[in-house]
Design a protein around this nucleic acid. Structure first.
Lengths: 276, 276
DNA sequence: GATCAGTTTGCAGGTATTTGCAGGCTTTTT
DNA sequence: AAAAAGCCTGCAAATACCTGCAAACTGATC
């Protein structure tokens, strides 16, 4: 038997901690381990930075990025510039049955075409406004002011849109914020455009509502916006409710799913509205 | 009978230990022994490297690989590039929507018990706060101030709760409103209670966050609330992040899913916190 | 003790994966 | 607009893996 010298290559990482002690870690993480760790951190803290992970695990940022990309492919987290976000946190509205969805989508398309980069846009709530939020072009850069929770959630899916939520008491009926604070805040905004989800409109009573607080919010929006756009399905045209918001003259543009030439809308054209 | 010389070939392995002693092992392992040993190591350490096992057992890496492949076929471990992981390691990944939901529900129960009729309550965002919102007793009459869209939506399901949404710029990361306006509004509230969804807490760094804007909102809440309650799963206890929110002394009550008597929490008790 | 089929093991080679890095590009921030 | 940070592509080194194959071992039988 002959004596053997063993040449051992040790794999380790060295780390200098806050007390200037040198810690050696005599192991490497397996890829899967690493990914599990990353996922764990993401779930724990909702958000991680590639740079941090790279330091913690002692691998290059490239490797972290590759891991994040892989995990994102598997839908286990959401990759963002500089790191990743946890998945479970991301809520989207479960598509409840929206009444007259197709019509509202047509309206949304028309409305979206009015918005240009850099604009300040005020919006109310309502399902038509939600469709508008969904119909926005992905690259649109604009600032949206809204009182609607659900609309805000939709806007959040757009990377280039800045969202200002108008705060105040939350109305459980209308699912928007209402009250004096909200009105005051709205009036401070110099908005280029204002989209009103419309409850009822006709030529004699103007725009009408069935909720006092919502009316007040809309009034505030109308008073501060350069250009007021009312969105409504044709079915609501020439109907009215109890509470008056404004005359039709205060509305600049009326959008329905119908052709602008439609008979039903001629009265509004005559009244000076821009019908789309 | 004539005398025989036996030529014996000894099978052994040599190993140099930490004291420079040379250990000889005068046996080889049978295949089954080896696999049992591997399984043992995997279950013990949750992970093994083929290279390590090969050195320990003194067989070629190919053999180890074959063993691992076999054991993986039997479902007794999980083969990965470079080694293997224990079974349990992978199970924990089973994607629950909310991470550590059960723990958070326990925390929510404890937290909900602190709220009494007529109180003004401030809350941040985060999944733990959502669970708190769900855990609120149906007949509770209170006023909730929140910066979180998702929390607001949950509160809306409670008929007797008044919700004040704090408005401002909406952070897409944190899904809460952030900014100077929001901070100012928060400070106007004289809240009885403040619930902080907590990202990381430890005794030396205090409460820490990974988002500057979120930190500011939390600071504002802490400054205005009578009683500050931090909610956190035990896993986040004694961890820290980049951005400091406050010292632990500024927190009145700490709620985790653990028993208040738990060892882990004793340092916080010592620091004067009320641990639940 | 010898033989023999079947299994196990190590090795040689060729292939696939993983990782870090450089260079150029894009996004974000200042 | 410049600077910084992050990202992507391609590349090379290291490592791990796979496929045969031959040597060695097992244990069963003659």
């Amino acid at each position: 038997m002959k004596c053997q010298f063993l040449l051992v290559r040790l794999r380790f990482s060295a780390d200098i901690n806050s007390n200037n002690q040198c810690l050696f870690r005599f192991f490497i993480m397996l890829k899967k381990e690493r990914q599990t760790y990353i996922l764990h951190q993401v779930n724990l803290h909702n958000r991680v930075l590639s740079a941090d992970l790279s330091q913690e695990i002692k691998v290059s940022e490239d490797t972290i990025r590759r891991d994040l990309a892989e995990l994102a492919d598997q839908g286990r987290l959401i990759k963002v510039h500089g790191g990743a976000l946890s998945q479970g946190y991301h809520l989207s509205l479960n598509a409840q049955q929206v009444y007259a969805l197709q019509e509202k989508q047509i309206i949304a398309q028309k409305a979206a075409s009015l918005i240009q980069d850099g604009m300040f846009v005020l919006t109310t709530g309502g399902t038509t406004i939600i469709e508008l939020a969904r119909a926005l072009p992905a690259n649109l850069k604009a600032t949206f002011f809204t009182v609607s929770l659900t609309a805000a959630i939709e806007y959040m899916h757009h990377p280039n849109i800045e969202i200002i939520l108008i705060g105040d008491k939350l109305s459980k009926n209308a699912q928007i914020t209402v009250g004096g604070e909200a009105q005051a805040k709205i009036k401070q905004v110099k908005a280029d455009l204002c989209f009103l989800g419309t409850n009822a409109i006709d030529t004699t009573h103007g725009l009408t509502e069935n909720d006092w607080e919502v009316m007040q919010i809309k009034k505030a929006m109308i008073s501060t916006a350069q250009h007021v756009v009312a969105l409504t399905i044709a079915e609501k045209v020439n109907t009215s409710q109890r509470i008056r918001v404004c005359d039709i003259q205060e509305i600049n543009t009326l959008i329905t799913e119908l052709s602008p030439e439609d008979q039903l809308l001629s009265a509004y054209k005559k009244a000076g509205l821009n019908v789309m």
